[in-house]
Computed example of a mutant assay.
Amino acid sequence: MHFTDYDTRVAAYAVIVDDAGRILLSWFNGNHRNDPGWTLPGGGVDYGEQMPAAVVREVKEETGYDVEVGAPLTTDVFVVPFDPGRRPYQSTRVVFEARIVGGELGTLEVDGTTDFAAWVALDDPAIEADTTSPIVRMGIAALKVAQSTQ
Score class of each variant (00 low, 15 high):
residue 1 M to H: 12
residue 1 M to P: 09
residue 2 H to I: 11
residue 3 F to C: 07
residue 3 F to R: 14
residue 4 T to G: 10
residue 4 T to W: 15
residue 4 T to S: 13
residue 4 T to A: 14
residue 4 T to M: 13
residue 5 D to L: 05
residue 5 D to Q: 14
residue 6 Y to S: 09
residue 7 D to T: 14
residue 7 D to P: 02
residue 7 D to N: 15
residue 9 R to D: 15
residue 10 V to E: 15
residue 11 A to C: 09
residue 12 A to V: 07
residue 12 A to N: 06
residue 15 V to E: 03
residue 16 I to M: 10
residue 16 I to N: 04
residue 17 V to S: 06
residue 19 D to A: 10
residue 19 D to T: 10
residue 19 D to M: 07
residue 23 I to E: 03
residue 23 I to W: 01
residue 24 L to K: 05
residue 24 L to T: 07
residue 28 F to S: 02
residue 29 N to Q: 08
residue 29 N to Y: 10
residue 31 N to T: 05
residue 32 H to D: 14
residue 32 H to N: 13
residue 32 H to T: 14
residue 32 H to L: 14
residue 35 D to I: 07
residue 36 P to C: 00
residue 36 P to M: 01
residue 39 T to H: 06
residue 39 T to G: 08
residue 40 L to T: 09
residue 40 L to D: 06
residue 40 L to W: 04
residue 41 P to C: 09
residue 44 G to H: 14
residue 46 D to N: 12
residue 46 D to P: 00
residue 51 M to E: 15
residue 51 M to S: 15
residue 51 M to N: 13
residue 56 V to G: 12
residue 59 V to I: 09
residue 60 K to S: 13
residue 60 K to F: 13
residue 61 E to G: 06
residue 63 T to L: 06
residue 63 T to A: 10
residue 64 G to Q: 04
residue 65 Y to S: 06
residue 65 Y to T: 06
residue 67 V to C: 06
residue 68 E to D: 11
residue 69 V to E: 10
residue 69 V to W: 08
residue 69 V to G: 07
residue 70 G to N: 06
residue 70 G to F: 08
residue 70 G to I: 10
residue 71 A to H: 15
residue 72 P to I: 04
residue 73 L to F: 06
residue 73 L to C: 07
residue 74 T to H: 07
residue 74 T to Y: 02
residue 75 T to Y: 10
residue 76 D to H: 13
residue 77 V to C: 12
residue 78 F to K: 09
residue 80 V to N: 14
residue 83 D to E: 14
residue 84 P to L: 09
residue 85 G to D: 11
residue 86 R to Q: 08
residue 87 R to P: 00
residue 87 R to T: 09
residue 88 P to W: 02
residue 88 P to K: 02
residue 90 Q to V: 15
residue 91 S to F: 13
residue 92 T to V: 15
residue 96 F to K: 01
residue 97 E to K: 13
residue 99 R to L: 08
residue 100 I to G: 00
residue 101 V to C: 05
residue 103 G to Q: 07
residue 104 E to S: 12
residue 106 G to K: 05
residue 106 G to C: 06
residue 108 L to E: 11
residue 109 E to K: 00
residue 109 E to D: 05
residue 110 V to P: 01
residue 112 G to Y: 05
residue 112 G to E: 08
residue 113 T to Y: 15
residue 114 T to M: 03
residue 115 D to T: 14
residue 115 D to P: 03
residue 116 F to V: 01
residue 116 F to K: 12
residue 116 F to S: 06
residue 116 F to C: 01
residue 117 A to N: 04
residue 119 W to M: 03
residue 119 W to F: 01
residue 122 L to I: 09
residue 124 D to S: 05
residue 125 P to V: 00
residue 126 A to F: 00
residue 126 A to I: 01
residue 127 I to W: 00
residue 130 D to M: 08
residue 130 D to N: 13
residue 133 S to C: 13
residue 137 R to L: 11
residue 137 R to T: 11
residue 137 R to S: 11
residue 138 M to Y: 11
residue 138 M to Q: 15
residue 139 G to C: 07
residue 139 G to I: 02
residue 141 A to C: 05
residue 142 A to E: 08
residue 142 A to R: 05
residue 142 A to Y: 04
residue 143 L to E: 12
residue 143 L to H: 09
residue 144 K to V: 04
residue 146 A to K: 12
residue 147 Q to T: 12
residue 148 S to P: 00
residue 148 S to D: 12
residue 149 T to P: 03
